[in-house]
Design a protein around this nucleic acid. Structure first.
Lengths: 249, 249
DNA sequence: CGCCATGTTGACTTTTCTCAATACGTGTGG
DNA sequence: CCACACGTATTGAGAAAAGTCAACATGGCG
């Protein structure tokens, strides 16, 4: 199985473009906008200086559960999934990572999940040891990291909440909500939603069977809440009702 | 509804005893023991200096979802639960917090969950503004915080994994495992497990009905894996099989 | 001793899972 | 250009599991 380690093809070190960013809620800020950029220009430059910028194709493995954690990753573009394969043969997707998310946090020096690209992605790969040095030299970098991990914690808690639901349609609604609210900028296509992952990935994320996801999709279509234009493109017909369904938990 | 804010009865400022501690995996350490104390003596003293040490009775509300977040809490003793009440009338327990856990992380200045004591607890209440000042003066304090939040993130991801299970007995097994592995020190009573929370709390944590928890308990008893001595005390008859059941997900 | 909250058990309903068959659709090769 | 084949997705019927509602047991505390 080929991992990013052995994949040098499209790796590049371009350091001119500074799209390395982290997004989260600032720590303790009372009334700022949600999802503010967290890094100062200086911090960004410091990180870019030690990071490698990689462009990778879909379905590329980044690291495997249990492997020694040599890098921390910051996504700049595209979608990555982290997952665990269970003894039963089932797969649980722990998270989908989008632009400005970080992943690869280790536990005692080892990755806890497996990470794989879903779409073509652009990511920054930061060597852990260099990062640790950098953090020691400039402790202010801990702050954005802390914010981001706190953000991730809340996202995970939200996911736990979702998994507690009994109804497949409600889970799917929360998932679509998440996709919708993620980093939506172009309000021109506000009602069009990109769903880059497969049904199987969605099922593994929601803790449902493939069939249940399919039926839940149909339910949402029958109720005129969404409409699938293609397999990976959803038109949001009634965003309000989607929210109501998602909130009714 | 009386919260800790209006409860001065048993509050005290004793600063002689230094049981303020945080426990988690150190950042990036390859081969250290799990759950190492994270604070240096100096850091502990700095925190104790700005914190209030409170002793609180069971069922005491610490803060409510949506309230302005004035404090961060560090537990020293006892059990606290954080939860959210849902529109449906159901309650989801987000986490049980034990000694050396932190809680009260805010989102844009407001608590995201409600926190309430389960048992009598001893906690350190750290004013957020003073904490922020302290963090600015001594950025090294960010490191243990980052470790702890990362630890919490993994715990939450594990909980999500648990919620993905279909079988009540398996969920309960994972819960008992969590209780068992938490901070067990006295190996004398290694097979006795304190379960301080009510069945209802367990149900809300596991995302099951009260009845399902009850039946799952009976299942584990019937299979000679556990034995309830009292409502809040479990004897672990077969810890290995508990682990197998918990792992079979 | 008896009340009230907590916990257990039983009967029936609801929902998803599972397994199997069928449809879609994308890229390839004739 | 069309037909085929493969992976992906949908639909249907029956099984399994927890949810719900209601009755009953337990246990702590005044």
């Amino acid at each position: 199985m080929r991992t990013v380690t052995g994949y040098a093809g499209r790796a590049m070190q371009s350091r001119g473009v500074h799209d390395l960013a982290i997004r989260a809620e600032p720590f303790g800020a009372e009334s700022s906008h949600p999802s503010t950029p967290l890094l100062t220009d200086r911090q960004r430059e410091q990180l870019v200086a030690i990071a490698a910028k990689l462009t990778l194709p879909p379905r590329m493995m980044l690291y495997q559960e249990g492997a020694a954690a040599r890098w921390l990753f910051v996504s700049a573009e595209g979608v990555v999934k982290t997952y665990r394969d269970l003894a039963s043969g089932k797969r649980r997707i722990v998270a989908f990572l989008f632009a400005r998310d970080i992943f690869g946090l280790a536990e005692r020096g080892h990755y806890v999940n497996t990470a794989r690209t879903v779409t073509r992605v652009v990511i920054y790969r930061v060597p852990i040891d260099l990062l640790r040095e950098l953090l020691a030299r400039d402790p202010s970098l801990n702050v954005p990291l802390l914010c981001k991990v706190t953000h991730e914690l809340r996202r995970s808690q939200r996911q736990t909440l979702m998994m507690g639901r009994r109804d497949a349609a409600g889970r799917l609604a929360m998932f679509l909500q998440m996709l919708r609210d993620h980093g939506r900028v172009d309000l021109a296509h506000a009602d069009l939603l990109d769903v880059p992952m497969s049904r199987s990935d969605i099922a593994d994320y929601l803790g449902l069977s493939l069939e249940a996801v399919s039926r839940a999709s149909r339910y949402l279509e029958d109720h005129r809440i969404i409409k699938f234009q293609h397999r990976h493109l959803v038109r949001l017909l009634d965003s309000r009702r989607l929210d109501r369904l998602a909130a009714r938990l």
